[in-house]
Amino acid sequence: MRPLRNIFAAILLLSGAALWATARADDGAGRTPTPHPPRAQGEHCVADTDFMRRNHMKMMMAHRQDVLHEGVRTPQFNISGCVNCHAVKGDDGKPVSFASPQHFCRSCHTYAAVKIDCFECHNSRPETDGKAAATEIDGEDAARLAAFLRETKQ
Rank of each mutant, 00 (worst) to 15 (best):
L145H: 01
D141T: 11
F119E: 07
Q76V: 14
R39I: 08
V67Q: 07
D92Q: 10
P95N: 07
F104V: 06
L4T: 11
R24G: 06
L19C: 14
K153H: 14
A142P: 07
G16W: 09
H69D: 12
K58Y: 05
L12F: 13
H63T: 13
V88E: 00
K89N: 14
I137H: 03
D138P: 00
P33S: 14
T32L: 14
F77C: 01
A134G: 15
F51S: 08
G81V: 06
G90S: 07
V83M: 10
C121Q: 12
L145C: 02
R2S: 05
S107A: 11
W20K: 10
H69E: 13
A10R: 08
V96F: 01
A87R: 14
G28S: 11
P95C: 06
D91G: 11
N6P: 02
F119R: 08
T32Y: 10
P3M: 01
S107Y: 00
G16H: 10
L149Q: 15
A134I: 08
A40N: 05
Q154H: 13
L149E: 15
R24H: 09
L12K: 14
A133C: 03
F98Q: 06
C118H: 05
S15E: 09
V83W: 03
V72I: 15
G71V: 07
A132M: 07
M60K: 00
I7A: 05
G30Y: 01
L68H: 10
H86F: 02
K115Y: 04
R31Y: 09
D92I: 06
A18C: 12
D27H: 08
R24L: 15
D92T: 08
I11Y: 01
S107C: 03
N84K: 03
G81N: 13
P35Y: 04
A25P: 02
R53C: 03
A147W: 00
K58D: 07
W20F: 15
E136Y: 05
C85A: 09
K115I: 02
Q65T: 10
C118R: 03
N6I: 10
N78Q: 09
M52K: 09
A142E: 15
C85T: 12
S80F: 08
Q41S: 14
A146W: 00
A25L: 13
R5C: 02
F51R: 12
A10E: 00
E70S: 07
C121M: 11
S15M: 14
D26I: 15
M57G: 14
V96R: 09
Q102T: 02
C45T: 08
A132K: 10
P101S: 04
S100M: 05
K153P: 02
S80A: 13
S80N: 13
A147N: 02
T135F: 04
R31A: 15
